[in-house]
Amino acid sequence: MRRWVRYEAPIMVCVELGDDGYTGKVVNVVLGDEHDDLNLARDYRGHFLIYDETMERVSVDERAATRAVTIAEHREWPDRLDWDEGPDALRYPDLYDPAAPDTDGDEDDDLEPLDLHDRDIVG
């Protein structure tokens, strides 16, 4: 069973305005991604936003939901370079399905060694 726990992250957009104060362009975008920048998202009642695999909202009273929040807040997250980027997962739930777990634990076993000396070379 999977649960998605929604967080909020600040995004600051720097706009350089022209002398007329009307024209301008975006010159920088900063995503706040440090520990203190990311906070659990809440609804208008203050309840955490937790979703199932199909992005249907689940009750915060559900035991799996409560446990998911606890695990997410422990912040043993994957390295930042391994995060997905793109459209909001809430709108596209199937876009970010985690990869199937490796059953044998050794990725190198899937590869066969290439021995160039034993192969016929077509030329």
Rank of each mutant, 00 (worst) to 15 (best):
V60Q: 01
P78Y: 02
P78H: 00
L17Q: 08
R6V: 13
V27G: 07
G24H: 12
G86A: 00
E16A: 14
D88A: 09
G123H: 06
D33H: 09
R45N: 14
T103A: 10
I121T: 11
D79L: 03
E73Y: 04
E73V: 04
G105V: 02
V27Y: 04
D84S: 14
P98Q: 08
E34S: 14
G123C: 05
D37T: 04
Y22N: 05
E62A: 15
G32I: 06
D19V: 09
E56W: 06
E112N: 09
E16D: 14
A99K: 13
L38S: 02
P101S: 09
G123M: 04
P101D: 09
P87D: 07
D118W: 12
D84C: 13
D108W: 15
T23I: 08
E34I: 08
D20V: 09
A9Y: 10
D79P: 02
R3E: 03
G105T: 04
H74F: 10
D37N: 14
V5K: 05
L40Q: 06
V60P: 01
V60A: 06
A99I: 05
E34P: 00
V27P: 00
L17E: 14
V27C: 09
V60H: 03
E76I: 07
D37C: 11
E73K: 10
L38P: 01
V26I: 15
